[in-house]
Write a protein that binds this DNA or RNA. Structure first.
Lengths: 238, 238
DNA sequence: AGTAGCCTGTGGTCAGACCACAGGAGGATG
DNA sequence: CATCCTCCTGTGGTCTGACCACAGGCTACT
C-alpha cells in the first residue's frame, strides 16, 4: 500500500477545501462544516483541520467566529487584500523581497492604474475627491496624512476596477508601511512636503479626469519616486 | 487583569516571529527554536505554535523537516513565489479574484517586464534562448508546451531583476493554470497555435534584445491577449 | 405572552501521548 | 587504529481527549 495520503494530513484538508471551492460546492458566504465534522469526514485529527483552517484564515479566505448560530463557525469570505498584505509584509521582513523591488512594483501597478483610469470614461472619482479634501485639512500629523495617502492610492486602484491590482497595491503598501513611517521622520520640513504631496495628488487626479493618460502616468511616477527618494527609502538612481 | 495576550495564541506566535525577523534576530538560513521550546518560551500550547508555523510554511517563509541535525526543524527560507501562488490560486478558487482581473494584471506586469528588459543593456537572455529552443522541438503535447511557456514567462520576469514581480507572475500563472489547460483543449488546431506562439515568442525576445521597448511591449500584449481570447478565457473586448 | 435561565454546538486552547525519521555518539569488530 | 553498526536523542507530524468561553436557540416558569 503506497499510502495515498502521502503525508501531511493538513494538506489533504487544504486540498479538499480547495477542491470544494473550485468545483463550486463552496462559495463566498457559505459555511464550512465544523472542525469536528471535517476531522471525522477526512479521517484526520482535529488539530490538522485547524492548521489548514488557520492558513485559509490568514490568507483571507475564511473568517471564524465562536458561538452558535448562522454566523458562527468558519465562513468563506474571500477578502484578498488581507492575505496579500500579510504575505508581502512577512516576505519583506524575511528579506525575501528587497524594499526596492516592492517600491518599483508599486510604481508599475500605480502607473497602470492611472493610465487605465484616464482612458476610462466611466470612471467615478467622487470618493477620491473626498479623500483629497480630507487631506487638505490643516494640522494633520505625518501618520494621519500617510494614512489618508494610503487610502487615496488604494481608492484609485479600486476605482480602476481590477481587484487583483487593488489587493496587490494594498499589500505592497502594508509591506513598506513601517519604513514609510520611519522615513517621514527623516523629512525636515514636513509641512512643505505635505503641501507638495497635496499639489501632486490634485495634479494627478486632474490629469486623470482630463483623460490625459500619459500625463497622469508621468505625474504618478514623479510623485512616488519623489517621495521615496526624499524619505531616503530608495536610491535616487532611477 | 486585562489579559495582554488579548486572544488568539497562534497570533502571538506569529507576531513574535515576525518581530524577530524585522529586528534581525532571524534571517534567511536561520533555524527557529523547536516547537516545544517556542511553546514554553511564549507560554502557549504546542498546537498554537504549530498553527503559526503552518502559516509561515504555506507563505513560503520557512521549510520544516523531521529528524535531527542542522537540516532538521523549521528553517527560514523566504521563497516568496510559492506563497504567492497558493494565495492567488485559492483566492481565484474562492471567487475573490475574477479571472479577467488576473489576466489583466498579468498583462500589466509582463508589459513592464518587457519594457524594463528592453531598456536594460545588462540583460542576460541566454537562459531564455534555451527555453525558446526547447519549445521549438516537434511533437510537444499541449501540457508540455504550456509548461515550457510558463517557464519562459517566469524566466523573463526573473531576468528583469524584480523579485516581487517575478513572484507575482508565478502566482498569477499558477492561479489560472488549470483554466489555461482546459482552454488549450478548446483550440482546434493546436499545432497551428503552437507555431504561432513560437513565432511570437521569438519576436518578443528579438525585440527585447534589439532594445525596442515599445515594440516588445506591444508584442507582449498581443501575444497574451491573443492566446487568452483564442482559448476562450477572456472576452475579446480589449 | 413574555421572560429568564438552561442546553447545545461552535471555535480556541492546552496537555499528553505516540510515531517516523535523521543524525550523532559510542561501542563492537576487523 | 580504522571502520562499521547500533542505540539514543531530539525533531516535526499526528491524534486523542479534555477543558473553556461564547452565541444562539429552546424550554419552562411566571
Amino acid at each position: 500500500m503506497p499510502e495515498v495520503t502521502a503525508a501531511r494530513a493538513w494538506r489533504t484538508v487544504l486540498e479538499s477545501i480547495e477542491r470544494d471551492l473550485v468545483e463550486g460546492r463552496l462559495g463566498p458566504g457559505d459555511r464550512l462544516p465544523s472542525e469536528r465534522d471535517l476531522s471525522a469526514d477526512l479521517g484526520v485529527g482535529r488539530s490538522s483541520v485547524r492548521e489548514a483552517l488557520r492558513v485559509l484564515e490568514v490568507m483571507g479566505l475564511i473568517r471564524t467566529a465562536t458561538g452558535s448560530g448562522p454566523q458562527a463557525g468558519a465562513i468563506v469570505i474571500a477578502a484578498p487584500s488581507g492575505g496579500m498584505s500579510t504575505l508581502l509584509r512577512l516576505q519583506v521582513a524575511a528579506q525575501g523581497f528587497p524594499l526596492a523591488d516592492v517600491v518599483q512594483t508599486r510604481l508599475v501597478l500605480e502607473d497602470a492604474v492611472a493610465a487605465r483610469l484616464a482612458s476610462d470614461p466611466q470612471r467615478d472619482l467622487s470618493g477620491i475627491r473626498g479623500i483629497l479634501t480630507a487631506m487638505d485639512a490643516e494640522g494633520l500629523t505625518a501618520p494621519e496624512f500617510l494614512a489618508l495617502d494610503a487610502e487615496l492610492h488604494y481608492a484609485l486602484a479600486e476605482a480602476s476596477g481590477n481587484t487583483v491590482i487593488a489587493a496587490m497595491m494594498a499589500g505592497l503598501r502594508t509591506a513598506i508601511e513601517s519604513y514609510v513611517r520611519e522615513g517621514s521622520a527623516r523629512i525636515e520640513d514636513w509641512e512643505a512636503m505635505a503641501s507638495r504631496l497635496r499639489a501632486e495628488h490634485h495634479g494627478i487626479v486632474d490629469a486623470i479626469e482630463a483623460g490625459r493618460a500619459d500625463t497622469s502616468r508621468a505625474l504618478v511616477r514623479d510623485h512616488i519616486t519623489g517621495y521615496y527618494t526624499a524619505a531616503g527609502l530608495v536610491p535616487g538612481d532611477h
